[in-house]
Design a protein around this nucleic acid. Structure first.
Lengths: 144, 144
DNA sequence: ATAGATGCTCAAGTCACTTGAAGTTCAAGG
DNA sequence: CCTTGAACTTCAAGTGACTTGAGCATCTAT
């Protein structure tokens, strides 16, 4: 089970080999020991740590945030409330992003609807929808 | 109203001067004419075009997509349905991203709730929440 | 023994800008 | 007219989180 090489570690954690080397380079993973021919060797603990890191990344934590979280892991004596804080702050950011996306979605839906309503006639230089993407089909060219 | 310099154009369009120069460099804006001292001069049409571009960017269209949209603008004889297509495809991408974020939000809410429920006791090495961020407070260290 | 998969390092590319350095030019006040 | 300081110029490098490519070494299987 242990003594994996980089490709196997990548497979088990849903990462790529270059990404693992990159994480090592930036100090998110320790510098792996090498076997005879200079190839990196990993063990169970590396799978767990990298899995943890990837999950954090899937949660959209930035590398720096992951570094903090991993630091909490490495230093259990620090407050676990720090992790809660980080997660709560992150949750706020996620919600803000979702609000933005909802607004964007509404605009795009309106845009497409206007296209269907007004440009059903087909293509051509008379098309109104390009007139103002921002105002959403206010009809007319961008340069009034 | 016209004969703006780069700073004014930036103010009117919610852009920055370096970004405008960048757009010129990548060919999204034409190379602006220069006044006596080699400073760029812009007019009304530039305000409109850049406003259009910024709105597209706020809609999260990529630079390449904006380039397409601007191309449609420049070449009115092409089909306005192309713009609809682009917007519809973009809408799908936005919705996919929102689904991801909703899942992420649920995970984070659960994570924070578990923190509150299980780690209310306070900080310390007994904290369970760091055990598995991915499984969300499955309790226990990452390295079993 | 050899072929092909996998590994290594180092460098550069991606996206959409932002930041910094070092030098001009412009508008206003004295 | 001179000076100050804001705004402009160019060019280069930095950002985040990797990905891609070149060119070579090593491992595994036949």
């Amino acid at each position: 089970m242990s003594h994996l090489r980089i490709g196997e570690l990548a497979d088990r954690t849903g990462t790529s080999a270059p990404t693992i080397r990159y994480y090592e380079e930036i100090g998110l993973l320790r510098a792996a020991p090498r076997q005879a021919g200079n190839q990196r060797v990993y063990g169970r603990a590396d799978v767990d740590r990298l899995t943890f890191i990837r999950r954090c990344r899937e949660f959209d934590f930035s590398i720096e945030q992951v570094r903090t979280l991993v630091g909490l892991l490495d230093n259990r004596s620090s407050s676990c409330l720090d992790a809660r804080e980080l997660a709560a702050a992150h949750l706020e950011a996620v919600r803000a992003k979702m609000r933005e996306l909802r607004a964007l979605e509404r605009s795009l839906v309106g845009f497409v609807a206007d296209c269907d309503a007004q440009c059903a006639g087909g293509p051509g230089p008379d098309c109104v929808i390009l007139g103002d993407l921002g105002k959403r089909c206010g009809c007319g060219p961008v340069v009034p």
